[in-house]
Simulated assay, not measured.
Amino acid sequence: MIGIATWARALFATPLAAILTLASGAIMAWLGWQALSWLLLQAVWPWQPAAACDVRTGLCWPFLVEKTRLILFGTYPFGLQWRATLASLLLLALAVLTGFQMIGRTRLHLLAFLAIWLGGLGVAVLLLGGGALGLPDVPSVYWNGLPILLFLAIASIAGAFPVGVLLALARDQSAYPLLWRFATIYIEVARGVPMLTVIFVGIFVLPLTLPPGTSIAPVSAVLIALIFFHGAYIAEDLRGGLQSLSKGQREAAKSLGLGYWQSMGLVVLPQAITRSLPSLVNSIIGAYKDTSLVVIVGIHDLISTARMSFNDPEWRGHALEAYLFVGLWFFLSCAFLSAIGRRLHTDRETAQTSSSQNR
């Protein structure tokens, strides 16, 4: 009660604060009523006829019931969408496992964790593409909606991490000017151009660099471009972690007889990654959301399949429902990533407080 009273006094401390509080409350109440009316009071429920959506102004559930599979999987063959469903669930499981591993809910050995990752990613690609184990082949041009969003986001971030580690280590080597300058130029250029430019390079320029007679699927070209683009951001996050460590860590590793790669792998990098985890999570959230830009080059992610759903002449005028569905998905998935980031930040502050008290 004391906290509520203090909070109330702060909101009405001055006449201006009271006016702003009352105005904000009125606006929020109006917006809340409009949302409640659209979601519930004026909604057309799944058991009601679809024709009622032309009369009532609320949420049209019959549209979502009919178009959910199109939004989720686009033009992926209808009879094979169970494969796209399993691939999406597997990719989501890998993302959740990674989050739990980062916050300590699971404590898998690094090699076991990498084996699960590579195996899960391989099975997901096999399910989506087929062509083996009796699964009919499905060209990547039909990998639409949620599967392609998850595949590009998860695979590009997973591939960008080792690239970022190598770039961060190279930029940390001021004793080797050529290596340091190459890493510096690459990182600054990659971070200085829009992501859309990199995607266009992957689609239109990368195939030109291949030997005559060879080709690369657009999904593969975009994936390669995303890996090297996100690698530059991850490298900067890791470089911050490397610079935050005292030189004594490297000197201690050297005094134990460890070589460069041993000291980096066993002593320096684990601490640098731990210190960089909050910023890494922030970069991962940005990379995940930015993956939707692939729609510009004709890859049909959730945004594109949502547009397909309301382009149907029978369902024109229901773009809000389609984009609300997509927005809810991004909100929930980004909320999970944000929760991981907050937990990592809290754990780091707790560890720092405990270390200070022990001293």
Rank of each mutant, 00 (worst) to 15 (best):
I199E: 05
A153M: 07
A225H: 02
T346F: 07
I154G: 01
L16G: 08
A155K: 06
A115W: 05
S292E: 11
A52M: 12
P77G: 07
Y142H: 14
E349C: 00
F325Y: 14
F151Y: 15
I154C: 05
R239P: 00
S333E: 13
L269M: 15
L210Q: 07
I216V: 15
P212L: 08
Y186H: 07
F113E: 10
A319K: 05
L324E: 08
L31C: 08
A124E: 02
Y186D: 06
L226G: 04
S355M: 02
A17Y: 05
F100T: 07
L133G: 06
K247P: 03
G241P: 00
P139V: 10
S88P: 08
G134A: 07
I273A: 11
F330H: 09
L118S: 11
W82K: 09
C53S: 09
A35K: 10
L226H: 03
A232T: 05
N311P: 03
A168W: 00
W33I: 12
W117H: 12
L242C: 04
W7F: 15
L242W: 00
A51Q: 13
I285F: 03
I148W: 00
I299V: 11
G265Y: 06
P207C: 09
L97C: 10
F12K: 05
I2P: 03
G122M: 04
G131M: 07
G164F: 00
V193N: 09
G79S: 12
A132R: 14
S355D: 09
L39E: 09
P212Y: 06
L22C: 14
C334A: 04
E236N: 10
G202P: 06
L135D: 07
W82T: 12
